[in-house]
Nucleic acid binder design. Structure first.
Lengths: 233, 233
DNA sequence: GTTGAGAATTAGTTTAGCCTAACACCCTGT
DNA sequence: ACAGGGTGTTAGGCTAAACTAATTCTCAAC
């Protein structure tokens, strides 16, 4: 592996740099800047540590840092972040479908493995799974070339009453909450119809395909990303 | 709270501690002490770094350090080392048989993954493979309980003169050394015979199947893990 | 019984990545 | 237009794990 001199080989990012880049990616997915304190909260470290790292990363060209404003990924940083996200989501898919892991537990395992696997291993796993496009939580998997589908999803909390939707993605990584949602039958791919919502940020009531109903509190409803379906479906 | 005070929880070994323990295990598999400079050579670090780590590890009870003599694993250290070796060999087996990895290069991949996988994942893999007892190189896999069959691989530096062996594993991931060894024809699977060894930690001289010879310095010989073959082979 | 080569250790430095405490900046409310 | 609160950054310190240079130990040869 030492043709490193001709092709500008990525100088092997450290584990924590990889984590910072992933955080910035997630925090800027809606556009705008990622703030120091949001990154700190997401990584569970102190804000000054983030400031220091931001300085280093902007010197190495992975992020653009506007002091007192926040940061964004450069194209190079975005490429690295997407690679980590591909690794993470392929790992989650593989662990779930080939090694019987529960969808609530895979996140933690993938979080450690994503820093240790080679690209070769990830591609072998992706191949064994038939190049999956979505992970077990319904999140899109970036391609090896670094392209990711732009989801236009709406949280269940925002769907109008009466609208049929497909639950596309569950935006959470806490095992307990995921376990609960799975018990309720609220997993990616499920079709449901919003039949009521109570006022003052109250729960949303949905009907599943089997005509049973579920009451979903706002906190959870905000994590259920849906694609609306035409009425007649 | 603070049940941690009564039951001495394994305080999560660092990656490099895990590597040190593995080295000591391999270097003492024939009995006796592992020396500072052999550990340093095997891990490709400077001897003073080893001295420092030996001090720390003996304070935490993982090794027994006799200054100026060498080190041995305590029962606790041996347990940790065997756990790493189980991880390593299960990973090698799984990558080879389930993901089409080549016999010769699973080692490098496993070397990184062994520090990141959970016990749960290893047991799932072992289960999927039907609890294998030997890895793809023929080395015995310790049980989850930490028992290992006494038929360990031996480094080329320890093989007696005259003994024919099969080179099973190259215990290194430094590209320069691997490249050199490959140029010399010293890759996993090769059969060779030890025809001489020079004194004072001098080089080992081996004959290959094509009757050419190679002179292997001690530093490299410590990385070449061999299985002895009966004389008549 | 001394001595010197080679191995091991101590001493001091470096880098990455985190921390807390103190200070600087920005912006909104009055 | 400026005062304060909250967010961001700077300053300084700590630990793990590596390094080099200097020192100490061991043991075998004379």
């Amino acid at each position: 592996m030492n043709a490193a001199l001709r092709s500008p080989e990525p100088p092997a990012l450290t584990r924590s740099v990889e984590d910072y880049l992933k955080s910035v990616f997630h925090l800027t997915s809606q556009g705008g800047f990622a703030t120091t304190s949001d990154i700190a909260a997401m990584l569970a470290i102190a804000p000054p540590s983030v400031s220091g790292m931001m300085k280093r990363l902007s010197e190495t060209g992975l992020i653009e840092h506007v002091p007192y404003r926040g940061v964004q990924l450069t194209p190079q940083g975005r490429r690295a972040a997407l690679q980590m996200i591909r690794r993470h989501r392929i790992l989650e898919s593989y662990l779930t479908s080939r090694l019987g892991f529960d969808w609530g537990d895979v996140h933690v395992e993938a979080e450690r493995l994503e820093h240790a696997v080679s690209d070769k291993l990830i591609e072998r796993m992706a191949d064994a799974l038939g190049e999956p496009r979505y992970d077990p939580h319904g999140a899109p998997i970036p391609t090896a070339a670094g392209e990711i589908e732009e989801a236009e999803l709406v949280t269940l909390a925002e769907i109008e009453v009466g609208r049929p939707v497909t639950l596309q993605e569950v935006g959470d990584e806490h095992p307990e909450r995921l376990k609960y949602l799975a018990e309720q039958g609220l997993t990616p791919g499920v079709r449901l119809t919003v039949i009521d919502r109570q006022p003052f940020n109250g729960p949303t009531i949905v009907r599943l395909a089997d005509d049973t109903t579920r009451v979903v509190g706002r906190e959870l409803a905000l994590l259920l990303f849906c694609r609306p379906r035409p009425d007649g479906a």
